[in-house]
């Protein structure tokens, strides 16, 4: 009696990664329209779907669906950036040692202090990277500032800028000190390109701080709005 209805159920596409799924098939399900997604995590789903399709299509990636709350949109993008930065951190761990990169630097102009500690500390680059990502994970998941992923207080949205500034330094350190790693990572993910466009479009960082050159820096979409 139960089985009949159930065989009908399986006809539809179930977007699941069942155990045994190969890396190739992972998340390789047909696209779903934003309007048709009905979970509370639609924005994350939608962003990830776009990235899977073409991580280099920055314009598409940053085009907000109609009627979407901008705070949530920015928040979910930043979550995705921090998550993918874990990939860069893994690579840096193999080359960026406290002995060689004693401080978090990009160009010689600034030494960045690590804000994860009670009093800002001059952490080695790899620690800075890890602490900043860990701190960002805590902040972006904090029940106090971001209790919901459906609606976000304006005051919490303001916190996103400082997270952006800090995590950007990971890109710049990799670019200026571990160029091979940076290029390898960027080729796969276009993460720095995406990030640069993102912070520019939503005016989350000042342009002076964006020191890593990106390929098509001339025409950043949405710059005029910012």
């Amino acid at each position: 009696m139960v089985m009949e209805a159930q065989s009908q159920q399986t006809q539809q596409i179930l977007r699941r990664n069942r155990p045994g799924t190969s890396a190739k098939e992972f998340c390789q399900w047909p696209d779903e329209n934003f309007e048709e997604m009905d979970s509370t995590l639609v924005v994350q789903q939608y962003i990830q779907q776009l990235i899977r399709k073409d991580p280099s299509n920055v314009e598409k990636l940053l085009t907000m669906p109609d009627g979407q709350d901008e705070g949530v949109w920015k928040y979910e993008h930043l979550r995705q950036f921090c998550m993918e930065l874990n990939g860069l951190a893994v690579k840096l761990q193999t080359q960026c040692f406290p002995a060689t990169c004693t401080q978090m630097t990009a160009t010689e102009q600034w030494i960045f202090l690590c804000a994860a500690h009670k009093t800002p500390k001059e952490c080695p680059a790899i620690d800075y990277t890890r602490h900043t990502l860990d701190g960002a994970a805590c902040l972006l998941n904090s029940n106090k500032y971001f209790p919901s992923r459906v609606s976000i207080k304006e005051s919490s949205v303001l916190k996103l800028g400082s997270v952006c500034r800090r995590v950007y330094r990971i890109f710049s350190h990799a670019y200026f000190h571990h160029r091979r790693i940076f290029n390898e990572f960027e080729e796969q993910t276009f993460l720095c390109l995406r990030f640069t466009h993102f912070v520019t479009k939503y005016n989350l960082m000042s342009k002076d701080n964006l020191i890593v050159p990106i390929s098509d820096a001339g025409e950043i979409p949405g710059e005029s709005e910012a």
Partner: peptide, 11 residues
């Protein structure tokens, strides 16, 4: 540029 507040230190 210096950092201002601590991020969200473990309390």
């Amino acid at each position: 540029m210096m950092d201002e507040n601590s991020l969200n230190g473990a309390q």
